[in-house]
Design a protein around this nucleic acid. Structure first.
Lengths: 186, 186
DNA sequence: GAAGAAACGGATACCGAATCCGGATGTGTG
DNA sequence: CACACATCCGGATTCGGTATCCGTTTCTTC
């Protein structure tokens, strides 16, 4: 692994910056488009990120990592139910405010190695949080470990279907999640 | 409106049959593909259905109508909660067993006039069912009329994200819906 | 400052969706 | 039956977007 050339590093940053902007404004990622906006050749972008999904994953990764971190911290929370529900709240809030997260979360575990890894970590801490809450008698026993991520994706999706615009998505998502949480609590 | 020519009617049927088959086997609709399978020219298919969505709508319509019918019948049920929850159950079961329904249900109300009309009817009866259940004190007051369809789409989506294959989707969907319903009930 | 490696750029190949129009086919009339 | 006309058919072609390829440029090392 030779140290990367300076121009390459700079361009990598530019691409990621532009991609982040596009994702934030809701525009679907298109590598040609990214190239134009970044003032780079198409080939340059395709060399750094061979597919749209690869770029998307790189954009989403830091935020995914933040979620995992939050989950870890939640494990130290005294109130098991608080910790569990707080974690889920973060999960949906992140998804409705960042389309890239929603996409990678729902993507099959084949491509996107880094995402898969993080999802597994998230599931692991999710499992622990769930176990604690269950042990404390705060959550119904019929919720399986593997249900957490899909359910949060579902809440995010429902929010999407409902929402008229990107504004006031958050309150809707919180309302839906609150309802679901009532159904999960013992 | 001159009565349609016989060959046109026949081809329309063929197209719809093939489309129904494709939807049932989970293949995403592609008009070129439909044409090949139906033994017709591409142009023929495109004349009958100018867009993929138009064909999808026509495929989904009968099943949507069946759902609306069921909602109407549910209005005569003695038990308001039973009627309401049964209606929702049908909604998700239909979506997870028929991708075309899931797609049109989540599509914005701009294109797909017929679908929009049916969705509005469904929302109307959904509203009535909800009102009855609420009046009977069976459902929490914080659920709005416009939330029903999005929530059912969300449950269907969660099922999708979770499921490994098209088999045993139904039990998962039922489980998720049951959880949600617990959250909705007073 | 010359050589070689690494990266750039955009013209071009490619792929699937949608159009367009010359030709075929069904339908009403003498 | 045959003619005329409208309707419909079919697939070659266009079109919009994605991905590749390779001659040129830029960086790094000595």
């Amino acid at each position: 692994m030779t140290p990367q050339r300076k121009d390459a590093a700079r361009n990598w940053d530019r691409i990621l910056t532009v991609a982040r902007e596009l994702v934030d404004e809701g525009t679907p990622l298109q590598l040609n488009d990214v190239a134009r906006r970044a003032g780079l050749g198409v080939g340059t972008v395709y060399r750094h990120f061979p597919t749209t999904e690869a770029l998307l994953e790189t954009v989403a990764t830091p935020r995914l990592e933040a979620l995992v971190d939050h989950g870890q911290k939640a494990l130290t929370d005294d109130d098991p139910w608080q910790a569990f529900s707080g974690f889920l709240t973060r999960l949906v809030e992140a998804q409705v405010s960042d389309p890239s997260l929603a996409k990678v979360a729902a993507t099959a575990d084949d491509a996107l190695p880094r995402t898969t890894e993080l999802k597994q970590q998230m599931m692991a801490t999710g499992t622990k949080l769930l176990a604690r809450a269950r042990q404390a008698g705060a959550v119904r026993p019929d919720l399986a470990d593997g249900d957490i991520v899909p359910l949060m994706c579902g809440v995010a999706y429902a929010t999407y279907v409902h929402s008229d615009g990107p504004a006031d998505r958050l309150p809707t998502a919180r309302r839906y999640l609150a309802t679901l949480l009532r159904g999960l609590s013992a």
